[in-house]
Design a binder for these strands. Structure first.
Length: 209
DNA sequence: AGAGTCAAATGGTTGG
DNA sequence: CCAACCATTTGACTCT
């Protein structure tokens, strides 16, 4: 990693690495410029590289630069007479059909890989272990998202069912209330009627109850 | 041109 | 402390 380059600003792209190369003098010459233009994060990386500290993760080799940092780094690489095909813009890795299907098959068997499995798979696919790791992370995220969509859809259906049931119960309640009201009214009318036609059998006078 | 996709980067968290 | 994970963001690329 970074064996052909003083400064490891390489971009790992599907097995090929884009590494801007510039010599020690040029690096010294540009130190001031870097001091002004690079973020602390990148400066730290530069410093670590200088003393030969290896990074915790391969991601340090695929660091994204700000526009400003990129333009400086681009300038550095250009000035070093680096291959013009080298670029610090992140190239999107497109997995081949074979790589994808092997990854998918592995994922179907096991959603989380051990370190050894990851390394083996990376070797088999001619990818970096970190790329395999990232692919599995993204794949798990996609699975989770899909599952959430499914769950959301079934919750929606359940909710719709509950709404229907609620509407039905409301209608039933209105109906029952109306029946009850009718019944009360009917009884009342009967009661009134009995009151009205309550006639004394002896004197034939209408009496109130 | 803008939306969508997806690999990669980043930052925070956690378990060993 | 460190490796691995997850959530989120970024950016290259594709599709419409």
């Amino acid at each position: 990693m970074g064996d052909n380059c003083d400064l490891g600003l390489g971009l790992a792209i599907g097995g090929c690495e884009f590494k801007p190369v510039f010599n020690h003098d040029r690096k010294q010459q540009l130190t001031g410029q870097l001091g002004i233009l690079l973020s602390p994060r990148v400066k730290e990386e530069f410093r670590d590289r200088e003393v030969g500290v290896t990074f915790k993760r391969e991601r340090a080799d695929t660091k994204t630069l700000t526009m400003e940092e990129s333009s400086v780094a681009k300038d550095l690489s250009d000035s070093a007479g680096d291959d013009s095909s080298s670029s610090l813009t992140r190239k999107k890795l497109r997995l081949t059909k074979d790589q994808s299907s092997i990854l998918e098959n592995s994922f179907r068997m096991q959603q989380i890989l051990s370190s050894k499995q990851k390394n083996d798979l990376a070797r088999q696919l001619n990818l970096k272990p970190r790329q395999v790791e990232v692919w599995f992370q993204n794949r798990r995220a996609r699975t989770k998202l899909k599952q959430q969509e499914v769950d959301c859809e079934s919750l929606k259906r359940w909710c719709e069912g509950l709404t229907c049931e609620n509407e039905r119960l409301k209608r039933e309640l209105i109906e029952l209330r109306s029946i009850k009201a009718q019944a009360i009214s009917h009884n009342y009318q009967n009661f009134q009627a009995t009151k009205i036609i309550n006639i004394c059998p002896s004197c034939e006078k209408i009496t109130s109850s």
